[in-house]
Amino acid sequence: MEESAFISFITPLQERLFRVAKRLLVSSQEAQDAVGEVTLKLWDKRDSLTSVQNLDAYAMTMTKNFCLDRLKSKQGNHLRLVHVNYEKPTDSLSESIEHRNSFSIVEKAMELLPEKQKLVVQLRDIEGLSYEEIEAILDMKPTALRVALSRARKTLKENLVKHHAYGLTKN
Protein backbone atom coordinates (compact mmCIF):
# COMPACT_ATOMS: atom_id res chain seq x y z
CA MET A 1 0.00 0.00 0.00
CA GLU A 2 1.24 3.46 -0.94
CA GLU A 3 2.13 5.86 1.85
CA SER A 4 -0.54 8.35 0.78
CA ALA A 5 -3.19 5.62 0.53
CA PHE A 6 -2.27 4.43 4.01
CA ILE A 7 -2.56 7.92 5.46
CA SER A 8 -5.97 8.55 3.91
CA PHE A 9 -7.15 5.19 5.22
CA ILE A 10 -5.95 5.52 8.81
CA THR A 11 -6.36 9.23 9.58
CA PRO A 12 -10.17 9.40 9.52
CA LEU A 13 -10.31 6.11 11.41
CA GLN A 14 -8.04 7.03 14.30
CA GLU A 15 -10.62 9.06 16.18
CA ARG A 16 -13.01 6.12 16.14
CA LEU A 17 -10.26 3.73 17.23
CA PHE A 18 -9.47 6.12 20.05
CA ARG A 19 -13.07 6.21 21.26
CA VAL A 20 -13.29 2.42 21.27
CA ALA A 21 -9.95 2.11 23.06
CA LYS A 22 -11.04 4.67 25.62
CA ARG A 23 -14.29 2.83 26.21
CA LEU A 24 -12.30 -0.26 27.17
CA LEU A 25 -9.24 1.24 28.84
CA VAL A 26 -11.03 4.26 30.41
CA SER A 27 -7.80 6.27 30.60
CA SER A 28 -7.33 8.74 27.73
CA GLN A 29 -3.57 8.39 27.92
CA GLU A 30 -3.72 4.64 27.55
CA ALA A 31 -6.23 4.92 24.71
CA GLN A 32 -3.87 7.31 22.90
CA ASP A 33 -1.02 4.86 23.32
CA ALA A 34 -3.21 2.03 22.05
CA VAL A 35 -4.08 3.93 18.87
CA GLY A 36 -0.41 4.78 18.40
CA GLU A 37 0.62 1.14 18.76
CA VAL A 38 -2.06 -0.11 16.39
CA THR A 39 -1.21 2.55 13.80
CA LEU A 40 2.46 1.64 13.97
CA LYS A 41 1.72 -2.06 13.59
CA LEU A 42 -0.44 -1.37 10.53
CA TRP A 43 2.16 1.00 9.12
CA ASP A 44 4.88 -1.63 9.42
CA LYS A 45 2.88 -4.11 7.42
CA ARG A 46 1.23 -1.70 4.99
CA ASP A 47 2.60 -3.66 2.05
CA SER A 48 0.45 -6.67 2.90
CA LEU A 49 -2.68 -4.63 3.70
CA THR A 50 -3.92 -4.60 0.12
CA SER A 51 -5.05 -8.21 0.55
CA VAL A 52 -7.26 -7.32 3.53
CA GLN A 53 -10.93 -7.14 2.59
CA ASN A 54 -12.36 -4.73 5.12
CA LEU A 55 -9.53 -2.53 6.35
CA ASP A 56 -11.65 -0.54 8.80
CA ALA A 57 -12.90 -3.69 10.49
CA TYR A 58 -9.37 -5.10 10.48
CA ALA A 59 -7.96 -2.03 12.22
CA MET A 60 -10.84 -2.05 14.69
CA THR A 61 -10.28 -5.72 15.51
CA MET A 62 -6.60 -5.03 16.13
CA THR A 63 -7.47 -2.18 18.47
CA LYS A 64 -9.99 -4.31 20.33
CA ASN A 65 -7.50 -7.15 20.75
CA PHE A 66 -4.77 -4.78 21.84
CA CYS A 67 -7.01 -3.25 24.52
CA LEU A 68 -8.29 -6.59 25.78
CA ASP A 69 -4.70 -7.85 26.06
CA ARG A 70 -3.83 -4.70 27.96
CA LEU A 71 -6.70 -5.26 30.38
CA LYS A 72 -5.77 -8.90 30.82
CA SER A 73 -2.17 -8.10 31.66
CA LYS A 74 -3.38 -5.46 34.06
CA GLN A 75 -5.49 -7.94 36.02
CA GLY A 76 -3.70 -9.03 39.15
CA ASN A 77 -1.37 -6.09 38.77
CA HIS A 78 -1.01 -4.95 42.34
CA LEU A 79 0.41 -1.54 41.45
CA ARG A 80 -2.68 -0.67 39.48
CA LEU A 81 -4.93 -1.45 42.44
CA VAL A 82 -2.90 0.83 44.65
CA HIS A 83 -3.10 3.50 41.99
CA VAL A 84 -6.88 3.25 41.88
CA ASN A 85 -6.99 3.54 45.64
CA TYR A 86 -5.04 6.76 45.50
CA GLU A 87 -7.26 8.11 42.77
CA LYS A 88 -10.38 7.56 44.80
CA PRO A 89 -10.41 10.68 47.04
CA THR A 90 -10.11 13.15 44.13
CA ASP A 91 -12.65 11.09 42.23
CA SER A 92 -15.31 11.42 44.88
CA LEU A 93 -14.94 15.19 44.79
CA SER A 94 -15.59 15.41 41.07
CA GLU A 95 -18.26 12.79 41.55
CA SER A 96 -20.21 15.00 43.90
CA ILE A 97 -19.93 17.91 41.50
CA GLU A 98 -20.98 15.78 38.55
CA HIS A 99 -23.66 14.00 40.47
CA ARG A 100 -26.50 15.63 38.66
CA ASN A 101 -24.79 15.33 35.32
CA SER A 102 -26.67 12.50 33.68
CA PHE A 103 -23.81 11.96 31.22
CA SER A 104 -21.60 10.71 34.01
CA ILE A 105 -24.44 8.46 35.17
CA VAL A 106 -24.68 6.85 31.75
CA GLU A 107 -20.90 6.67 31.62
CA LYS A 108 -20.80 4.87 34.97
CA ALA A 109 -23.49 2.49 33.81
CA MET A 110 -21.46 1.81 30.68
CA GLU A 111 -18.36 1.10 32.75
CA LEU A 112 -20.24 -1.57 34.68
CA LEU A 113 -20.99 -3.57 31.54
CA PRO A 114 -18.88 -6.60 30.62
CA GLU A 115 -16.24 -5.87 27.97
CA LYS A 116 -18.08 -7.52 25.10
CA GLN A 117 -21.28 -5.58 25.83
CA LYS A 118 -19.32 -2.35 26.13
CA LEU A 119 -17.86 -2.97 22.70
CA VAL A 120 -21.19 -3.86 21.17
CA VAL A 121 -22.86 -0.68 22.45
CA GLN A 122 -19.87 1.44 21.48
CA LEU A 123 -19.75 0.08 17.94
CA ARG A 124 -23.49 0.16 17.36
CA ASP A 125 -25.00 3.03 19.33
CA ILE A 126 -22.04 5.39 19.25
CA GLU A 127 -20.08 4.52 16.11
CA GLY A 128 -23.21 3.53 14.18
CA LEU A 129 -21.71 0.47 12.46
CA SER A 130 -23.80 -2.13 10.66
CA TYR A 131 -24.49 -5.49 12.28
CA GLU A 132 -22.34 -7.20 9.63
CA GLU A 133 -19.38 -4.98 10.43
CA ILE A 134 -19.69 -5.56 14.17
CA GLU A 135 -19.98 -9.30 13.64
CA ALA A 136 -16.77 -9.20 11.62
CA ILE A 137 -14.92 -7.05 14.14
CA LEU A 138 -15.93 -9.03 17.20
CA ASP A 139 -16.08 -12.39 15.44
CA MET A 140 -19.66 -12.99 16.60
CA LYS A 141 -22.65 -14.80 15.18
CA PRO A 142 -25.70 -12.59 14.40
CA THR A 143 -27.76 -14.10 17.23
CA ALA A 144 -24.95 -13.71 19.74
CA LEU A 145 -24.57 -10.09 18.73
CA ARG A 146 -28.29 -9.43 19.09
CA VAL A 147 -28.36 -11.06 22.53
CA ALA A 148 -25.31 -9.09 23.74
CA LEU A 149 -26.76 -5.85 22.42
CA SER A 150 -30.15 -6.51 23.97
CA ARG A 151 -28.64 -7.37 27.37
CA ALA A 152 -26.42 -4.31 27.34
CA ARG A 153 -29.22 -1.93 26.41
CA LYS A 154 -31.59 -3.37 28.98
CA THR A 155 -28.97 -3.15 31.71
CA LEU A 156 -28.23 0.45 30.81
CA LYS A 157 -31.91 1.29 30.82
CA GLU A 158 -32.48 -0.36 34.20
CA ASN A 159 -29.59 1.50 35.77
CA LEU A 160 -30.88 4.79 34.39
CA VAL A 161 -34.41 4.10 35.54
CA LYS A 162 -33.05 3.41 39.02
CA HIS A 163 -31.19 6.68 38.95
CA HIS A 164 -34.23 8.60 37.81
CA ALA A 165 -36.42 7.00 40.44
CA TYR A 166 -33.83 7.89 43.04
CA GLY A 167 -33.75 11.46 41.79
CA LEU A 168 -37.52 11.73 41.97
CA THR A 169 -37.88 10.46 45.53
CA LYS A 170 -35.00 12.68 46.67
CA ASN A 171 -36.39 15.91 45.28
Binding site: F103, V106, G128, K157, L160, V161, H164
Partner: peptide
Protein backbone atom coordinates in the same frame (compact mmCIF):
# COMPACT_ATOMS: atom_id res chain seq x y z
CA UNK B 1 -33.81 7.50 30.85
CA UNK B 2 -33.74 7.04 27.07
CA UNK B 3 -33.23 10.74 26.54
CA UNK B 4 -30.16 10.58 28.75
CA UNK B 5 -28.95 7.47 26.98
CA UNK B 6 -29.27 8.88 23.47
CA UNK B 7 -27.85 12.24 24.53
CA UNK B 8 -24.83 10.40 25.90
CA UNK B 9 -24.40 8.46 22.68
CA UNK B 10 -24.48 11.56 20.50
CA UNK B 11 -22.10 13.39 22.83
CA UNK B 12 -19.65 10.48 22.71
CA UNK B 13 -19.92 10.31 18.95
Amino acid sequence: PYKDLFAFFSKER
